[in-house]
Computed example of a mutant assay.
Amino acid sequence: MDATIVGLGCWAHVRRKFIDAQKATGKGKRSRADTAIHLIGKLYKTEKQIRHLPAEEKTRIRQERAKPQLEKFKSWLDENLPQVPPKSTLGKALHYLAGQWKRLTIYIEDGRLEIDNNGIERSIRPFAVGRKNWLFANSQAGAKASAALYSLIETAKLHGHEPYRYLRQVFTELPKAQSVEEIERLLPWNLACISDE
């Protein structure tokens, strides 16, 4: 697996901004926000249909279905952006979408990527809820160490590891590692899942 870090946009965040704009329009009135929400809904419909497919197949289908939808959406955005006051709720939503466009469209290039970060947000919710309990990380170094450990745990879970067993194996094997290659073998995507004992 390539360990390149890619900055992705989140379509759920974009959708929330257009929902805010829709609410500001008032009940029963159609607006550009409704159009944007409809277009985003089409992207999510494709994602729902391919959710359980392998990454390569997701990429292929996204190129066939989502890419043309995104191209239409971009044309709509380019046409409507100059027509809306930037300080309005709708204007803010449109400018956010325009500013994030490149990051929002990366997901169609790689089936391993998600259309939004809702799954990640759900997985870190326990940390966010419990953050007052973790005030011991009262330094920048402590916060960085906590973030690294949380990221390692969530990545291990993503790759099918039970976190306690994974960390136990890593902490057992890491002191024995003599090279960068031996350390990299302990990364979640390189280590075979640890069976029940």
Rank of each mutant, 00 (worst) to 15 (best):
I40S: 00
I40A: 00
G41M: 00
K42C: 07
K42S: 06
L43R: 00
L43D: 01
Y44P: 02
Y44S: 02
K45M: 07
K45P: 03
K45H: 13
T46D: 14
E47D: 05
E47H: 02
E47Q: 02
E47A: 00
E47C: 06
E47R: 01
E47K: 02
Q49G: 08
Q49I: 03
I50D: 00
I50L: 07
H52I: 12
L53G: 00
P54H: 05
P54F: 04
P54Y: 02
A55T: 04
A55Q: 08
E56S: 12
E56N: 11
E56M: 02
E57P: 03
K58E: 04
K58M: 05
T59S: 12
I61L: 15
R62L: 09
Q63S: 11
Q63C: 13
Q63M: 15
Q63K: 08
E64P: 04
E64C: 11
E64N: 11
R65W: 11
R65A: 09
R65H: 11
R65G: 10
R65I: 12
A66Y: 05
A66V: 07
A66W: 05
A66L: 06
K67S: 13
K67T: 14
K67G: 10
P68V: 05
P68W: 00
P68C: 01
Q69F: 13
L70A: 09
E71N: 08
E71V: 12
E71L: 12
K72C: 12
K72P: 06
F73G: 02
F73P: 03
F73T: 08
F73Q: 07
K74L: 10
K74P: 06
S75F: 13
W76S: 01
W76R: 04
D78W: 09
E79Y: 13
N80R: 11
L81Y: 10
L81M: 02
L81P: 09
L81G: 06
L81F: 08
P82L: 07
P82E: 05
P82F: 08
P82N: 13
Q83P: 06
Q83R: 13
Q83T: 12
Q83F: 04
P85G: 12
P85N: 13
P85V: 08
P86H: 12
P86W: 12
P86I: 14
K87Y: 10
K87E: 14
S88D: 01
